[in-house]
């Protein structure tokens, strides 16, 4: 089903708002991970603004689609999306990483409405998503489970334990995204510890694999449709992304993995994100 021009425009605008939140939030917090938050913004917008069956007024609705942010350091993206969807007031975004905030440095399902799983320690999200997908199958429910992994995160052994299990239990109600921005804290993933070839590895583990441009909504939405119609095995969507996407001085710069912009830098970034 082709996506309408209006829809694409709506998503593009939402993604711009989300990116602006990410910059404002991390600048206000004085810490955080803007690079990897910006790289996955379009994926989360596609899911929350188009695909997922959710009810922001009823965050714990049992039949909702689930989302697990396995790369929990991209919490600003999730919080921005949830605030935009109305799970909590946008003013809360200013409290990111501050004492007593509902917005912890990494996602906390007990503190933030709309967060389906507590994450932050890398490698653990896919296992939790598997559990949700198994529960869905067991209960005969039609909800779907989405999980986003970082490419550096694929270096964690638990990811592959979980990948094996998802295929073994034929979790076709589960779709994983890999935010393939090519960078991790210490440098390019291929220099630190190459997880390549990511597609071949997932294929070998029994997954259906789709490659997309992680900043192209048509591409992302089409891949999600393909994942939904794939039966008998889980799907991974390997999304080529740009770390720091949308902020020219952050793009593809490893230094912006875990550093907040200063006030001036934030202003410059927000200017680039106008429109």
């Amino acid at each position: 089903m082709p996506v309408s021009k209006e829809k694409l425009e709506e998503l593009t605008k939402a993604a711009r708002r989300v990116r602006r939140h990410i910059i404002e939030m991390t600048a206000e917090a004085g810490s955080g991970h803007p690079g990897g938050s910006l790289s996955c913004a379009d994926i989360l917008v596609a899911l929350y603004f188009h695909e997922m069956k959710i009810d922001p007024k009823n965050p714990n609705w049992p039949d909702r689609d689930r989302f697990v942010l396995s790369k929990g350091h991209a919490a600003p993206t999730l919080y921005a999306v949830l605030a935009e969807k109305g799970y909590f007031p946008k003013e809360e975004l200013k409290t990111l990483r501050k004492i007593n905030s509902i917005l912890q440095g990494h996602p906390d399902m007990k503190k933030t409405p709309g967060v389906d799983m507590t994450t932050g320690s890398l490698g653990q999200g896919l296992s939790a998503a598997n559990g949700m997908a198994l529960a869905g199958k067991l209960d005969g429910k039609s909800y779907r489970v989405y999980v986003l992994l970082g490419d550096g995160e694929l270096e964690e052994g638990q990811v592959w334990e979980a990948a094996m299990a998802a295929a073994h239990y034929k979790l076709d109600n589960l779709t994983a995204f890999v935010d393939h921005n090519g960078l991790q804290i210490d440098g390019p993933i291929n220099q630190v510890m190459s997880p390549e070839i990511i597609q071949d590895k997932f294929r070998a583990f029994g997954w259906h694999v789709i490659d997309v441009d992680g900043h192209d909504f048509e591409d992302i939405l089409q891949a999600i449709e393909e994942a939904k119609s794939t039966k008998g095995r889980p799907t991974v969507i390997v999304a080529r992304t740009v770390k720091g996407k949308g902020v020219p001085y952050m793009e593809n710069q490893v230094d912006w993995h875990g550093k907040a912009p200063s006030r001036e830098q934030a202003e410059e970034a927000l200017k680039a994100l106008e429109g």
Binding site: M109, G125, N130, G131, L134, E161, A162, A165
Partner: peptide, 22 residues
Amino acid sequence: FNMGIAEQNLMGTAAGLATCGK
């Protein structure tokens, strides 16, 4: 659910099941 010889995934999967009321 036999999770095979993979204890980290065993615990994580149990956590996911618990979020859904199991």
